[in-house]
Simulated scan of single mutants.
Amino acid sequence: MNDYQDCGSEIAESLPEIDEPFSNHLNRDLRDSLHGTLVNTFTRPDFQKRLLGCRVFSGPSEIASGEAAFTLLCTRVLKSLTDGPELDIARAIVAFSDDPHCQLAALQTVTRSLGEAWCSDSTNFASLTAAVSRLHLALNVNSCALQAQSVGTDCPSIRFVLPKGETHRFATALVEEHFRIRGWHTHVQYSCNRHELKKVLAFDRPSVICLSWSDSRLKPSVNDLLEFLSEHRPENTLFIAGGPASVAKMGWLFKRGVDNVFSDTYLARECAEMHVALITKQIGGQKI
């Protein structure tokens, strides 16, 4: 997975320059942060085609399109979340594109930039919390309008499981939305309710279980959860994990029964769809 991060600088340098007052520094930082989660997407021809229909006003009579529009939108949202002018994020994202994949990609890019600012001590906890809350609100507003593929009783399902005490839930909501728009049945399960979780695993038999783990201090809680899942995990159910703590404890998770750990949403979704294709001969709610 780290191989994708090494490609980030090459893609960042290939993004077009945007001439906008007071945004040059932010644009440069944003381009530098386009790695990991989104590198796999930007290198794909299908995403390049999706971006062709994206538009953002870059001036009174000028319109940026494609990658330039994407970069400009993310820059404006990031500025609004930090020290820039107030912006209706949900409306700005809808105006940028009616493609849910492009909308989610923009939210993920901004989220990753905020995370890197936190790791480099460039922001404080209060500012980060306020920014993430605004992004979560925008996701909730837009998700009501994002059309998913046809979901039927034979569609695959994924259960996102959070360990007891996990408070970082926005990233999970973003990943859940990626699966939902592909036609998956999705649900976030809190592991503190073991009776309900046991019933879900026994009767719903999800295609995929995804552990969402961000806070490494919750390792004891995660250990208890892994022991529970090893006992009650249905046959043919793929078990994956994501989040900063999952990536940091990858080897430990493998020893505890996790099939794969991802720092890239798109790779996780591809893995899940390949698993479903092998088991049930369907991908994203559509027969193959």
Rank of each mutant, 00 (worst) to 15 (best):
Arg180Val: 05
Thr123Tyr: 06
Asn124Val: 02
Asn236Asp: 12
Ala268Lys: 01
Thr123Lys: 13
Asn24Lys: 10
Asp154His: 15
Arg28Asp: 07
Ser246Tyr: 02
Asp224Trp: 04
Val56Ser: 05
Met1Pro: 13
Trp252Val: 01
Ala90Pro: 01
Val110Asp: 03
Tyr4Lys: 05
Glu273Leu: 02
His185Tyr: 10
Ser191Ala: 15
Gly84Val: 06
Leu114Lys: 12
Val261His: 09
Asn24Arg: 11
Leu229Gln: 04
Gly242Leu: 00
Ala12His: 05
Gln103Phe: 02
Val110Asn: 08
Ile93Trp: 01
Gln48Lys: 12
Ser207Ile: 03
Asn140Met: 10
Ala148Thr: 09
Val132Gly: 03
Ala92Val: 03
Leu267Gly: 12
Ile63Lys: 11
Glu231Met: 07
Arg31Asp: 10
Ile209Gly: 01
Asp98Lys: 13
Ser150Glu: 08
Ile283Met: 12
Ile158Asn: 10
Leu211Cys: 11
Ala12Ile: 01
Pro156His: 08
Met250Asp: 08
Trp118Cys: 06
Leu51Ile: 07
Pro85Glu: 12
His187Tyr: 14
Pro21Ser: 04
Thr71Ile: 14
Leu15Glu: 07
Glu86Thr: 11
Leu225Asp: 02
Asp29Trp: 07
Trp252Tyr: 14
Gln147Lys: 15
Ser9Asp: 10
Leu135Asn: 01
Leu114Ala: 06
Arg256Leu: 10
Asn27Pro: 01
Val132Leu: 11
Asn236Gln: 13
Ala248Val: 08
Ser191Asn: 05
Pro220Ile: 01
Gln149Ala: 15
Ser191Lys: 02
Ile288Leu: 15
Trp252Asn: 04
Pro100Trp: 00
Leu78Ser: 15
Arg205Gln: 14
Val222Cys: 06
Phe125Ile: 10
Asp98Cys: 12
Gly36Asp: 13
Glu273Met: 09
Lys249Arg: 11
Val161Glu: 05
Val175Phe: 10
Phe254Ile: 07
Phe228His: 08
Phe47Lys: 03
His195Gln: 15
Val132Trp: 01
Phe42Leu: 13
Ser263Asn: 12
Glu166Gln: 12
Ala64Asn: 05
Gly84His: 11
Phe22Ser: 05
Asn140Trp: 05
Ala64Val: 02
Arg194Leu: 11
Thr153Ser: 12
Ala138Ser: 14
Ala90Thr: 00
Leu218Met: 05
Gly243Val: 03
Glu67Asn: 13
Phe160Asp: 07
Ile89Leu: 09
Gly36Ile: 00
Thr37Gln: 15
Thr71Met: 14
Glu231Arg: 02
Cys155Met: 04
Leu253Thr: 00
Arg182Glu: 12
Ala148Ile: 00
Arg269Val: 14
Asp98Thr: 15
Ser122Phe: 02
Asp99His: 03
Asp88Asn: 14
Gln149Arg: 15
Glu20Gln: 09
Leu201Cys: 11
Ser143Met: 09
Ala138Phe: 00
Ile18Thr: 09
Val110Gln: 10
Leu34Ala: 11
Asp88Ile: 01
Asn260Val: 00
Glu176Arg: 00
Ile209Lys: 00
His178Pro: 01
Ser143Ile: 05
Val132Thr: 14
Pro244Asn: 14
Val77Thr: 02
Gln103Ile: 04
Val151Ile: 15
Leu38Gly: 02
Ala272Tyr: 06
Asn27Tyr: 10
Ser214Met: 07
Lys255Pro: 00
His25Asp: 06
Gly152Pro: 02
